[in-house]
Amino acid sequence: MEIDPFIFRLSIFVLSIFIGYYVVWSVTPSLHTPLMSVTNAISSVIIVGAIIAALAGSEENILESSNIFGFLAILLAAVNIFGGFLVTQRMLQMYKKKKK
């Protein structure tokens, strides 16, 4: 019997939870705020779905309601991607070691 592709995706999902578990425990507590802002930025990879939604259909009916929801999602995700990565960068720049 053939295995449903869903099972493969589920495997990836479950393994990624484990990876996430171990990786996040190794994050130093002093960087927990940048951790939140960077996870926020990467979860905006949902923009991938938004782009597919926005570009679906033919050239004439690019402004159907499903496309419009896609465009709005792109707008929101873009705020998050740029805002999230840049604010993380700004924070990380501030963490300095003692001058010897």
Partner: peptide, 30 residues
């Protein structure tokens, strides 16, 4: 920073809702 992060979370949430709506309205695209 706390309110900024909360605000950013809300955007991810809403973007997820929009993508889901779009997929429901036009499943053939996906």
């Amino acid at each position: 920073m706390p309110e900024l992060v909360a605000g950013f979370h809300s955007l991810v949430g809403l973007a997820a809702v929009f993508v889901a709506i779009s997929a429901f309205l036009k499943p053939e695209a996906f």
